[in-house]
């Protein structure tokens, strides 16, 4: 039995260590997020601020094709506000009865209109680099939201001595290799928050990363609250199974 427990401990430690060891890049500082932990939930006011940051800054270069405008109502926006967000952008539709394609304002049922019609156009506008779609970014990198936060706050005008930054790139201490194609997107007061929150660089980064986690895991609130109920129920049921097992086996011992 002891050997088995030691073995499981070893396996568990290996399993825990593997993700960290697999990350070749720099150490990523862990942040505190409102939606972390068993009881974590999104802070919708924060998500609204994060949406504002994405809308005002990031969406100029980054697409987010997996999210639809109607999803924004989860953040607390009214139907009219959602309709207005959608209608800011034009979408190609058709063909009409004349056989032509035409432009129309986006509807809530449409997915976020990307800033560029295709990858090639995106590259042309961004020095040959393709700004990745951000829908799943918080799940698509080792370190998840902590990593994205580290990137957003990891820019430094003065790289370490001896580090070469090619033309058109920028030094970022959190990015593998240190050189990233994205210019620093945020700084203090880069946006003016609708709810009046002080827009420091760290606050902006926190808010937009929380928003990005929501776009990657919109089901989180429901998943965790259902999880608590399910595990609680199972603990009760398993306890009953155990009691019944003891009862049935009692005459054998």
């Amino acid at each position: 039995m002891r050997k088995f427990l030691l073995s499981t401990l070893a396996a568990g430690l290996l399993a825990a260590a593997t993700p960290a060891l697999a990350n070749e890049g720099p150490e990523i500082e862990k942040q505190a997020w409102s939606w972390q932990g068993v009881f974590g939930q999104y802070d919708k006011a924060q998500l609204r601020r994060g949406w504002q940051v994405f809308h005002d800054i990031c969406s100029n270069c980054h697409s987010m094709k997996l999210v639809a405008y109607r999803n924004l109502s989860y953040l607390g926006f009214s139907d009219d506000e959602v309709k207005d967000f959608a209608a800011e952008k034009q979408v190609t539709d058709g063909p009409n009865d004349q056989g032509d394609m035409f432009q129309r304002p986006a509807r809530p049922s449409d997915h976020f209109v990307p800033p560029f019609p295709n990858d090639q156009a995106a590259r042309v506008a961004n020095n040959g680099a393709l700004p990745p779609d951000l829908s799943l970014m918080a799940k698509a990198r080792n370190g998840g939201p902590d990593y994205v936060y580290a990137i957003l706050t990891g820019f430094d005008d003065t790289p370490p001595a001896g580090h070469v930054v090619p033309d058109g790139m920028y030094y970022n201490k959190a990015f593998g290799g240190g050189n990233i194609g994205m210019p620093p997107p945020i700084s203090d007061d880069a946006v003016t928050y609708a709810d009046g929150t002080k827009a420091t660089k760290e606050q902006i980064a926190k808010d937009v990363v929380s928003f990005l986690n929501w776009t990657a895991e919109p089901e989180l609130d429901q998943r965790k609250s259902l999880g608590i109920k399910v595990i609680g129920f199972l603990i009760v049921l398993t306890a009953m199974f155990y009691a019944l097992k003891r009862k049935i086996w009692a005459d054998l011992h």
């Binding site: 129920f233 199972l234 049921l237 009953m240 009691a243 009862k247």
Partner: peptide, 22 residues
């Protein structure tokens, strides 16, 4: 003992069936 076990059996079965339905 029999009635106690029966109660436990019925109660556990009921909870189990409810869980399965959910």
């Amino acid at each position: 003992g029999e009635t106690r076990r029966d109660f436990l059996l019925y109660a556990t079965t009921a909870v189990g069936v409810a869980g399965t339905a959910m």
